[in-house]
Amino acid sequence: MNASAWNMLLEGAWTTVWISAVSIAIGVVAGLVIALIRLARIPIIDQLLVLYISVARATPLVTLALFIFLSAPDLGLDLNRSVAGILALTLNTTAFNAEIWRSAFRNFSREQSEAAMAIGMTPWVTFRRIMLPQMVITSLPGLVNEMSFLIKGSPAIAVIGIVDLTRVTNRISAVTYEPLPPILVAGALYMAIIGCLVWLQRLAERRANRLAM
């Protein structure tokens, strides 16, 4: 592989990282918001959210990306490829994250929230100061799992023409006729990206030990 091939690989890696990172960032927060809304059990809205979660979880990423990219013009939306790709990844990961957060809410110790309410905290302060910090720690293994699934599933967005870390290996081998080296390097880069996440997870686990009372 020559310098330009390396350059292309790094550019592909960058595309994968930033598109995934944006989707993860939105997806983690949006999932939390959905879980919060579902706690309120508002009729119709709750059913709509359940429908969204089941559809999003059941739809392959490739299908979702194609659908969003191809249907956008009909809806009068002018989506560029990156936005469509982020939208597809976000819609997918949000649904999974919403379920992770929801189970964290369900399993949260009632005794601890009672102690917070009894001392004069409003539900919002209780959520922000007592529940959320612990929910982040207990949910992080599940969330990081979902993040790595998302990154590993992200080559699906190549279907709408985004040149990500996997797609770029194709382009390189089309010139060099040597498919293995770029694929190997891409594999190593995926491992490095996901390794960072696992490292984050380990940090959280060390804190989680405290929560085991």
């Binding site: 004069g120 302060v125 085991a212």
Partner: peptide
């Protein structure tokens, strides 16, 4: 309203059978 309730609750301090400390 919850804010007002929280204010009155703050006038009481409760100690529970199971301690209910915040582990984080």
């Amino acid at each position: 309203p919850v804010r007002e309730l929280a204010k009155v609750r703050a006038q009481t301090g409760m100690v529970f059978q199971g301690f209910n400390l915040w582990p984080h």
